[in-house]
């Protein structure tokens, strides 16, 4: 494990995408180790936060990282950034896990995705989109960030979130709208 810590600089999005590419084409374990040390603990925390017990969160974080190894060749930087791609894997495995709990029936159904032809242009737009989403998130008020996070980390509809926060539904809806509106301005404003 210690050799993983050699490079403690936080990799940026391009670096992470390059590492996934190396795993895909060269089955490069050094690159994989760097991805693992960066993402596994974050996935672990993220999954706990979405309500999974610590043991389960860690198991699924591990599953996600194994999927990253297996599916690295499916990663398409024209469609999503590295963190976004890994987030969607975690999201899908978490859904599978919760459904297995409920139905006790296995099944590795992939979510239906629509093929889009990648082009130089979409590649640029994807990178910009990722950067702008991050910019936009920084500009949110605490209240807006809270409802946005609640939408991500709880399965409650906004009406329930409102009840829990002791706020009128309209207030929650307008905070989400403002938060997403800010995202949209940043996403669409420069294209």
């Amino acid at each position: 494990m210690t050799r993983l810590m050699k490079d403690d600089g936080v990799p940026d999005g391009d670096e992470l995408a390059r590492l996934i590419g190396q795993v895909a084409t060269e089955r490069d374990r050094q690159a994989y180790a760097r991805l693992y040390s960066y993402f596994a603990p974050r996935l672990n925390a993220f999954l706990r936060r979405s309500g999974l017990p610590p043991n389960t969160a860690e198991e699924i974080a591990q599953e996600v990282m194994l999927s990253v190894w297996r599916k690295a060749s499916y990663f398409d930087p024209a469609r999503a950034g590295a963190a976004t791609w890994i987030f969607t894997i975690a999201r899908n495995l978490r859904i599978d896990h919760l459904r297995r709990l409920r139905t006790a029936s296995a099944g590795e159904e992939e979510p239906v995705e629509v093929e889009t032809a990648p082009s130089g242009e979409t590649l640029l737009l994807t990178a910009e989109r990722e950067a702008r989403v991050r910019e936009a998130l920084k500009t949110l008020s605490d209240e807006q960030a809270t409802v946005l996070r609640l939408s991500f980390f709880s399965e409650k509809a906004h009406s329930e979130i409102a009840r829990e926060l002791g706020l009128p539904l309209g207030t929650v809806k307008s905070r989400v709208r403002l938060a997403l509106g800010r995202l949209r301005v940043l996403l669409e404003g420069h294209t």
Binding site: F39, P41, N44, T84, I86, R134
Partner: peptide, 30 residues
């Protein structure tokens, strides 16, 4: 895609929770 990018950004912004010390070795074995 934009909302999924929000998910990616939230994932990266999450304060890490360490995995078990042997987790990476276990991943390599798998």
């Amino acid at each position: 895609a934009a909302f999924e990018a929000v998910g990616g950004a939230l994932l990266e912004a999450t304060a890490p929770a360490p995995m078990a010390p042997d987790a990476f070795a276990a991943a390599l074995r798998a």
